[in-house]
C-alpha cells in the first residue's frame, strides 16, 4: 500500500514547504491549551494574561506551538515521515486576532551511518510579518518504496546524533 508524502530522494537543500496560514481566535488558543492539558490561566483568562503576564491577550501555549509545527511538517512530508528532533524559540507570543503564517525551507539533507535519510527543515512562524517563533526540525524520510523510518529502533534510530544548532 502506498501513502501520500515524499521520499528522501525527492528533496534538495533549498526546497520550500508550502505556506500555511491560520487565523487565531480565542477558541484556537483555548482549544490548544485544553487539548494539551495546560490549565494555566494565561491561556484562557484574558484578565490574568493582561494583569499578571503583561501581555495584551491570552496566548498560544508551548505544546500547541509544537503541535502546529508537527502538523506543518507532516502535511508536507506525509505519514511515513518521522520527526527525530524539534526545537523552537518563542520570541513573541501569538494572540487572538493574529494570522499565523508558517514558512519552511530545507536546510540540510544527509544519510546517517544507520542508512537513515534525514532532512533538516527551518520553519519561521510569523504574525503580520513579525517572526514570533523560529523552529528547526530533523525529520526522517523513507529512502525507498519499502523503507519506513517508523520501523527503526535502537541503534538504527538516531534522532540527535550531534549537538543541536
Amino acid at each position: 500500500m502506498s501513502w501520500p508524502g515524499i521520499r528522501f530522494e525527492q528533496i534538495e537543500v533549498g526546497d520550500e514547504l508550502p505556506e500555511l496560514r491560520v487565523e487565531v481566535t480565542p477558541s484556537t488558543v483555548v482549544l490548544g491549551a485544553l487539548a494539551s492539558r495546560d490549565w494555566r490561566p494565561m491561556h484562557h483568562d484574558k484578565d490574568f494574561a493582561q494583569n499578571r503576564n503583561g501581555t495584551r491577550h491570552i496566548f498560544i501555549n508551548t505544546p500547541h506551538n509544537a503541535a502546529y509545527f508537527e502538523r506543518y511538517l507532516t502535511d508536507w512530508a506525509g505519514p511515513l515521515a518521522r520527526i527525530g528532533r524539534i526545537q523552537f524559540r518563542m520570541q513573541d507570543s501569538v494572540f487572538p486576532g493574529d494570522t499565523m503564517v508558517f514558512r519552511g525551507r530545507v536546510e540540510k539533507v544527509e544519510v546517517d551511518d544507520a542508512d537513515c535519510g534525514w532532512v533538516e527543515v527551518a520553519i519561521l512562524l510569523s504574525v503580520q510579518d513579525r517572526v514570533t517563533t523560529q523552529c528547526s526540525a530533523r525529520v526522517a524520510l523513507p529512502r525507498a518504496e519499502d523503507d519506513n523510518p517508523w520501523r527503526r529502533r535502537g541503534e538504527a534510530w538516531r534522532p540527535a546524533p550531534t549537538a543541536t544548532p
Binding site: 500500500m1 501513502w3 484556537t28 482549544l31 490548544g32 485544553l34 487539548a35 494539551s36 500547541h64 503541535a67 502546529y68 508537527e70 502538523r71 507532516t74 502535511d75 505519514p79 511515513l80 519506513n148 517508523w150
Partner: peptide, 22 residues
C-alpha cells in the same frame, strides 16, 4: 482532540489501518 486543535489530518492518527501498517 489534539489533532483537531491544529487540524492535523495525518492518517496515522485517524485511520486504524494506516496506523497498523506504518
Amino acid at each position: 482532540t489534539s489533532c483537531a486543535s491544529v487540524q492535523n489530518g495525518n492518517p496515522l492518527y485517524w485511520d486504524e489501518k494506516a496506523a497498523e501498517v506504518i
